[in-house]
Design a protein around this nucleic acid. Structure first.
Length: 602
RNA sequence: GGGGGCGUAGUUCAGUUUGGUUAGAACGCCGGCCUGUCACGCCGGAGGCCGCCGGUUCGAGUCCGGUCGUCCCCGCCA
């Protein structure tokens, strides 16, 4: 096959622009062959570029040679055409195309390149397995739907920059090769050739650097930045991901929340033409857990959890009564009007195995009890064991009406809450209460500062070790560290954690006190965070910030269900890239240079 | 580390429950015909290590064990 060179051709338009007001114009278009409809006589080509599709026509009477050659065109061949824009004949317009009123009749055509038959069809409606799509990502990215997502991502990044620039923020880059920090996620490590036996770590976030920028007096910093965490993947987790990282000096929680709300308001208006309701509602961590069973509630729908322990504490329903006496609780989920739910669905909630298999509940819950509330009687095994008074109390507490189905889970809070959270999400989705055109933000505040880790038998920072405790709780650090609340906040959107931050510690003594509570002794603190402790002694201003998960945010804005759909070249669940085959072995020479020796199991 | 789903033509899938002729469909691909199609149409054709290894069996796509890949989830993710 002979290829043509570009020659002196310059594109005049993209494949989305031309319409009836261009008729008669001579244009040059370039792009990929989407489809060929070869009538033997006329040949129609759908020409595609990133902007759209334009139909071009090869007519033997217009140019016999071009028409003859066009028989050989195949999907994904790369061509340029010079021709005239003309109206389509009466009744031949295609309302599905933006350019559907016109077509380009070809006077001259150049074949720039051919394509092998693609492993999957490069069309929006044809689905292909994700592994194949990632292996041939360059083809997958030609499809308009995934390209649109990345365009939205680009626009979103620009809108973020615009807003923050206008609000006095400086974008500052921080190192990607830095030192390993002992707290938090597993680090990605990079061996140092010039310092044998020593390693850099890729940053889990620019946390320390952005605080140091505040200490440097930069006042307002931001960065759209890659972060790296060597943990297992999920639909909304990649080993490298992007944060909108923000830090401000001389601010408290309110100011950071307001700034974030302004930023997101700007972003949603600019990108989706969607006006957000500001300010966002706030829930304390304790409230969120009580009402939704999770610290990242989906507030697009109600269906809140109700603590019904008082109903059962002294009831004849022995299973529940005993669990409560043992320090447990009974919480309920009132599914309004769902008394018609088939018995089989309820049977699938009985027993650990059923819950795992049918509801993806892996909390260790033994089962879910239920009552179907009818006009005259209440159905279900629980109802029989309740007195009239208990029934009244229950109806009152849970707002029961005829036609309702109420689900109960009893036990320790760490089982009850996540179980009901999963059930609430399950039915929220199933009953169509999760409208992904709706964007419900919620702040979650007042997280615990520390939590006890049973494995390492010490306290760990819930957020990170530089988070300030609530002032009146500082006294608790020595004797009841688990009771101290933090000045941390998360931002939740439709049940997804899309951001989090805190007011930081800016006093040397308090930082040492928190390290102490974390079981980090003076020597270790000096060795690992010495530079930070030092900086705190040279006039550190009050400061705080937030980091937004940019991938998740864009995912939700695009209506996607995985952040892989908004990342150009994402990784699979085993953190591999099917296209480049990364990660891959390296040569012995490379290892030697780094003073490394492999010691593989098996 | 653990639980669950999937793996069959280039692709998306059916077939596996209950083992038994030559493993099917659609789209795609190849050849031919076709001057108004746009999911073009019509005729013809090619295309299979049923993920891999082992076992049970007279016989395995189908049953059993293992393994690899992929997806969802738990743990983990300051």
């Amino acid at each position: 096959m002979n290829f043509d060179s570009l020659g002196d051709w310059e594109r005049t338009h993209d494949c989305c622009t031309l319409g009836s007001d261009y008729t008669g114009a001579e244009v040059i278009l370039m792009g990929w062959v989407q489809r060929r409809r070869d009538h033997g006589g006329l040949i129609f080509i759908d020409l595609r570029d990133r902007a759209g599709i334009t139909q071009v026509v090869f007519d033997p009477q217009r140019n016999a040679e071009a028409h003859q050659r066009a028989h050989a065109l195949r999907p994904e061949h790369v061509i340029g055409v010079r021709g005239e824009v003309r109206f389509r004949p009466e009744g031949m317009t295609n309302p599905k195309l933006k350019t559907g009123e016109i077509e380009v009749i070809v006077d001259e055509y150049r074949l720039f390149n051919t394509s092998l038959t693609p492993p999957f069809q490069v069309e929006p409606e044809v689905d292909a397995g994700e592994n194949l799509r990632l292996r041939y990502r360059f083809l997958d990215l030609r499809r308009p739907n995934i390209f649109q997502n990345l365009r939205t991502r680009h626009n979103a990044a620009q809108a973020v920059r615009q807003y923050l620039n206008e609000n006095g923020f400086l974008e500052v880059e921080t190192p990607v090769l830095t030192r390993s920090t002992p707290e938090g996620a597993r680090d990605y490590l990079v061996p140092s050739r010039v310092n044998p036996g020593k390693f850099y770590a890729l940053p889990q976030s620019p946390q320390l650097f952005k605080q140091l920028l505040m200490m440097a007096g930069f006042d307002r910093y931001y960065q759209i930045v890659k972060c790296y965490r060597d943990e297992d993947l999920r639909a909304d987790r990649q080993p490298e991901f992007t944060q909108v990282d923000i830090e401000m000096a001389f601010v408290d929680e309110d100011q950071i929340c307001r700034l974030t709300e302004g930023l997101l308001g700007h972003l949603f208006e600019k990108i989706l033409d969607h006006k957000l309701q500001l300010p966002f509602p706030r829930l304390t961590y304790d409230e969120a857990l009580a009402r939704y069973g999770t610290d990242k509630p989906d507030t697009r729908f109600g269906m809140e959890l109700v603590d019904v322990s008082p109903v059962f504490a002294d009831s004849n329903f022995q299973i529940f009564a005993k669990l409560i006496k043992a320090g447990g609780m009974v919480k309920a989920l009132n599914l309004k009007g769902q008394a018609t739910l088939p018995r089989s669905d309820l049977d699938k909630m009985q027993g650990k195995e059923n819950l795992v298999n049918h509801y993806d509940i892996q909390t260790g819950a033994q089962g879910v009890a239920w009552i179907k509330v009818q006009e005259t009687n209440w159905q279900g095994p629980v109802a029989k064991n309740l007195t009239m008074g208990e029934k009244e109390l229950l109806a009152d507490t849970a707002g029961l009406e005829p036609g309702d189905l109420i689900l109960f889970v009893a036990g320790e809070s760490r089982v009850v809450n996540p179980t009901l959270d999963t059930l609430r999400s399950h039915f929220g989705r199933r009953l169509g209460l999760m409208d992904n055109k709706q964007f419900q933000f919620t702040w979650i505040t007042r997280f615990p500062l520390l939590e006890y880790d049973h494995d390492t038998k010490r306290y760990l920072a819930v957020h990170h070790p530089f988070t300030a405790p609530v002032e009146e709780d500082i006294g608790l650090l020595t004797d009841h560290p688990e009771q101290a609340r933090s000045r941390a906040y998360d931002l939740v959107l439709n049940g997804n954690e899309i951001g989090g931050g805190s007011i930081r510690i800016h006093h040397h003594n308090l930082q040492r006190q928190v390290f102490q509570a974390l079981g980090i002794d003076e020597e270790e603190a000096q060795q690992k965070f010495g530079f930070m402790l030092e900086a705190l002694q040279y006039g550190a201003p009050p400061h705080g910030g937030i980091a937004l998960g940019f991938d998740r945010l864009v995912m939700l804005m695009c209506g996607a269900t995985s952040i892989r759909d908004v990342i150009a070249f994402p990784k699979t669940q085993k953190a591999g890239c099917p296209m480049t085959q990364a990660p891959e072995k390296v040569s012995l020479e490379q290892l030697l240079e780094l003073s490394l020796k492999l010691d593989l199991p098996g």
